[in-house]
Amino acid sequence: MKQLLVFVLFAALFCWLMFSPVYKHVLLIRQAILQQEVDYLLEVGASGRYGYIDDAMIDESRNRLSQRGFQPSLLQYEVDSTTGADPRTPAAPLPRGVGIKLAIRYPYESLLDIDRLIGIEPPAAGDTISAAGLKMSEYVP
């Protein structure tokens, strides 16, 4: 009986040791992809040509991220400005010097459930990984 218990505990620990780094790597890659997308959207949206991040840009971003394995319906975008003005309106772009804030959130999707094998609680179902950034608008009317 002791041998069976030792085998089960060893098997669980062995599975965690083998697969946990892979899941952590996937989590790090997802975080990096989200941050890259935030940086790209801010670079385009805050450029001298636009001065806003509208719904069409966000839809294109969802499509790009879906090609990388993200589910578009689970992506949450938060766009704000440092002055409180609406940064999503193409008709009223933010002038030069006003900051555009962007955050993208995505759920963990039970990615870290394997950690339960060694007694570590995974993130709650509503927890998300996120990437955020701030860039000053360069738009000059």
Results as ranks from 00 to 15, higher is better:
I104Y: 09
V8E: 10
I58P: 03
P90M: 08
A103M: 08
A103S: 10
L4W: 09
L112E: 11
F10K: 08
L102S: 07
I100V: 03
E78I: 04
P123L: 09
A132N: 11
V22R: 13
Q71H: 10
I33K: 12
P123R: 15
P122S: 10
P123W: 11
H25R: 14
L17S: 07
K2M: 11
A56G: 07
V22M: 13
L112C: 07
W16V: 11
S130Q: 15
R49I: 08
P123N: 14
K2D: 13
R105N: 07
V140N: 10
G48H: 09
Q35W: 05
M18W: 10
D127I: 00
V44Q: 14
R62F: 02
L102Y: 06
G51Y: 02
R116T: 11
E43Q: 14
V98M: 02
G84L: 09
R96P: 01
L9M: 06
P123S: 14
L42Q: 12
K135P: 00
Y40D: 13
Y40G: 01
I53G: 09
P90W: 05
L117T: 08
K135F: 06
I129V: 10
P87H: 06
G133F: 09
S137E: 04
N63W: 03
A91F: 03
R105W: 02
S137L: 05
Q67E: 15
C15P: 00
G51Q: 02
G45W: 06
I29V: 11
G133P: 05
P141H: 08
I53L: 07
V79K: 07
D54S: 05
V98G: 01
I129C: 09
A132L: 08
R68K: 14
Y52C: 08
A91C: 04
M57W: 02
D55G: 05
I29Y: 07
L5A: 12
R88C: 02
E121D: 13
S130G: 15
S66A: 15
P107I: 03
Q35N: 07
V38Q: 12
I33C: 04
R62T: 01
A124S: 13
L74Q: 03
L111A: 06
D54G: 01
I120E: 12
R116I: 04
E121S: 13
Q3G: 11
V8H: 06
Y108H: 13
F10P: 00
P93G: 04
G119H: 12
S66L: 06
I58E: 13
A56I: 02
V38F: 10
D59L: 10
G119M: 11
I33F: 06
I29R: 13
Y52Q: 06
I100T: 05
W16E: 15
L134Q: 09
C15H: 04
G119L: 09
P95V: 03
I53N: 05
D80C: 03
D59C: 01
R88F: 00
Y50S: 05
Q31W: 00
S137V: 03
M136V: 01
G119Y: 12
